[in-house]
Design a binder for these strands. Structure first.
Lengths: 214, 214
DNA sequence: CCTACCGATCGGTAGG
DNA sequence: CCTACCGATCGGTAGG
């Protein structure tokens, strides 16, 4: 691996675990096996390095987004959208922690990111939800945008602190049952969105998948 | 107000907004209007001050907890429990931010706090939920402990970043609609917990409140 | 509650 | 990619 990628890798771990102010450039350089001035050759400032770390998270999200929106147009859109989003963050929980920290540290900057990068496709999905409300699949009392924001927060924030929350579920203290949390999250998201009819219709589709035509 | 309380107040705001490492003792002292060594007379170290700030949050929570558990034994336990918990954090969102930051910065310490201070009364409430499952008021597929953890996270994390999330809901960019988020949170928590029968029974109780006997 | 000061560490630069 | 070094700021102490 080239040095630049190594630096980004180590910096991601450190910024996620200890935050911007809790991470020193020397500590990152040490982990990579170089000296601080060498690090500053690849990234001209600590702020530049931090920006690059966040940018990498956004880039990787943008890489799976088209695949997600394509799935959102298919039949079992809900399960795919939710489980793929969960997968993206559980595959590297540091992504969730970085986003959470950035929201706490720079709320104004995060508001802007939300408006330009999240709001557009969130509105697209909210449109799907509204149409499903008219067809009676989705509960009429649901607030599409607010619902989606809560589910996103449930996933991102949940993954960021899942190993801490999980300890309450496993009495022994050894294994933190994250799967139990994920299953319940999925249940909460489903049940609070769909009507009983919508749920039945969805389960019917799932039972028929594979044997059906396409 | 005495100096000690002033220091705690300012430190709470600063630690919540910028984190432990992002807050200097001089900055806190400046806000209070004293010098750093004077601050260190009241709190022997930065760590001691930070502990005192967290302790104050826990103390204030413990002050409302008996009132909460008493309400949990009454009839409309769900609405009271949820809305009082929301009130506790919205009344000072810094409480939520401090807890979130502590979870990110010191997950091991937070795990311990969860086990000794949260798990006990969470088990009590989970017991209520399980009994309501047997009577058919609560959905049989709900996982009581996991459900409660998600709702707690939804409230605490949600309040911590509500002004950032809210910006997506208000297109104008002026007022962030936090009430819309709160209402949808409450809906998600209710609908994903109760059966249709349980919801009807609850609404019946609420309609009868005030005119009923006690 | 203050002034004065300590060693350590920070992000960043010079120069090779 | 390194050594050597910079000014600024950190948490904390001495002494009054």
């Amino acid at each position: 691996m080239d040095v630049r990628a190594q630096i980004l890798d180590v910096a991601t771990r450190r910024f996620a675990a200890h935050g911007y102010d809790g991470t020193s450039l020397s500590a990152i350089a040490d982990d990579v096996g170089i000296k601080k001035p060498s690090l500053l050759y690849h990234f001209p400032s600590k702020d530049d390095l931090h920006r690059a770390v966040l940018e990498q998270v956004v880039d990787r999200w943008n890489a799976v987004l088209p695949h997600l929106l394509a799935a959102a147009a298919s039949q079992d859109r809900f399960d795919t959208l939710l489980s793929e989003t969960v997968r993206f963050f559980t595959e590297d929980p540091d992504r969730a922690r970085l986003i959470l920290r950035e929201t706490l540290d720079h709320p104004a900057a995060m508001r802007e990111r939300l408006l330009v990068a999240v709001a557009p496709w969130l509105e697209v999905i909210a449109g799907y939800v509204r149409r499903a409300q008219e067809s009676g699949e989705v509960r009429a009392d649901a607030d599409p945008e607010a619902y989606l924001l809560h589910v996103i927060h449930l996933v991102v924030g949940g993954v960021a602190i899942s190993d801490t929350l999980g300890i309450v579920l496993s009495r022994d203290g050894a294994s933190s049952d994250i799967e139990r949390l994920t299953r319940e999250l999925s249940r909460i998201a489903r049940v609070s969105l769909f009507t009983p009819e919508g749920l039945a219709r969805m389960d019917g589709r799932r039972a028929g998948a594979g044997s059906g035509s396409h």
